[in-house]
């Protein structure tokens, strides 16, 4: 048998009032440094770059060099993945627990 999590109307009313207070609190609007691991909450807004251009790939970006080959796979990930490795995992990128 599963236990239903009953939320009373009073709880919701109280939470909504608190939420409204949070939304109007001056601290909410103040800029904070983005630290998603330190502070896991909605308050942090990360934007990234809007460089997902609609027209990507429509240009004649290719070279005349015929570099397309059906080679066997030979590439190694050489980006930032090494820098982000968790120290606990010692090279293992698998999570400690999932």
């Amino acid at each position: 048998m599963t236990v239903r999590n009953h939320i009373t109307t009073a709880t919701i009313a109280g939470s909504l009032a608190a939420a409204i207070a949070m939304l109007s609190a001056p601290a909410w609007g103040a800029p904070k440094p983005p630290q998603p691991t330190m502070d896991k909450c909605y308050g942090i807004s990360l934007k990234g770059q809007n460089d997902c251009a609609a027209g990507a790939g429509t240009t004649c970006a290719g070279t005349s060099k015929v570099d397309y080959q059906g080679d066997a796979w030979k590439y190694v990930a050489k980006g930032t993945c090494d820098a982000m490795r968790t120290p606990k995992g010692m090279g293992s990128l698998m999570p400690i627990k999932s």
């Binding site: 983005p34 630290q35 820098a83 999570p95």
Partner: peptide, 22 residues
């Protein structure tokens, strides 16, 4: 979110201590 932010220029690239889900 942390991994993306580090690679989108939002936060500095660093080892991730807390490897729990986001």
């Amino acid at each position: 979110v942390t991994i993306w932010a580090m690679n989108a220029g939002e936060i500095e690239l660093a080892p991730i201590e807390d490897w729990s889900g986001e």
